[in-house]
Design a protein around this nucleic acid. Sequence first.
DNA 1: GCTATATGTCAAGTATACCAGACATTCAGT
DNA 2: ACTGAATGTCTGGTATACTTGACATATAGC
Lengths: 72, 72
Amino acid sequence: MGAERLRNRLRVARAERRISQEELAGLAGVTRQTISSIENEQYVPSALLAFVLASRLDKPVAELFYLEGDVS
Amino acid sequence: MGAERLRNRLRVARAERRISQEELAGLAGVTRQTISSIENEQYVPSALLAFVLASRLDKPVAELFYLEGDVS
DNA sequence: GCTATATGTCAAGTATACCAGACATTCAGT
DNA sequence: ACTGAATGTCTGGTATACTTGACATATAGC
């Protein structure tokens, strides 16, 4: 899986909602560290988690996550 | 991560495009088995792969993948 | 200065995505 | 009947998502 990276606007979306990492983690059913790691792009989430996060933040998933360096 | 499942319309989208699992795998940079496993929902892909697949199939990711049993 | 909230991060463990190679089945074409 | 394309699936391996528990720092309120 080539050159493109998956970026996200999780931190901004969370700030708009004014909820903490811990609250979002609770809403999504994961740990706080998982949210932190995704925001800092230490790893990319599973597609399931990406969709759940979008759902909890009430945003389309494509607005929260996007490809960078796409070749398509 | 609770009750919801991640479903996908990969097989249909691929049929529309008339490409084989192997071709799609090549486009996405993964193996044929990976495509097969995702179509048969043996596991959910990473968010990166989900977005790459959508890009290669020229569909919005939310059209290819969707949550089922959402509580949101 | 103390305490609580929010965040970063580390280490060790478990679960699962994904790979590589192989074998089997089905179906279309000849 | 044979062949090749497409798909399913198994096994064993590696990479990485995610957990749990802990410790550190920064900031805000009292």
